[in-house]
Amino acid sequence: MSVYPYIVAGWIMVVGFFGIARSRNLVHLILCVSVVQSATYVLLLAIGFRDHATAPIFQGVAPTARAVDPVVQSLTLTDVVVEATVVALLLALAVDAVKRFGTLDPQDLRALKG
């Protein structure tokens, strides 16, 4: 089945969403957000793949060699960096939440705010 890798990406995304929905801990929730985002890596890299192709690194390889698409790879690099920054900011917010409300459970947070 030639679309199977794309479906893997969709599956990772949905599993991440499910984890966010049923999370009882902010740190767990933040990791689930990063799982959702990692689905985009799988999708991007799967789309750029070419059959029987090497990596787009032409060290000792002729520039005419069949290589996979480098554009999606550089997009993935951007994606990874953005994910790291998102996780760092969310973790800082989680630290803040513990200080203000004394809990990491998102459900208790809501009760305390209202």
């Binding site: 030639s2 679309v3 890798p5 794309y6 793949f49 059959d51 032409f58 996979v68 480098p70 999606v72």
Partner: peptide, 13 residues
């Protein structure tokens, strides 16, 4: 899968 057709990456390569 494996039959990507975007020309941009090919040109860059």
């Amino acid at each position: 899968f494996g039959h990507y057709r975007g020309p941009y990456g090919l040109v860059i390569n």
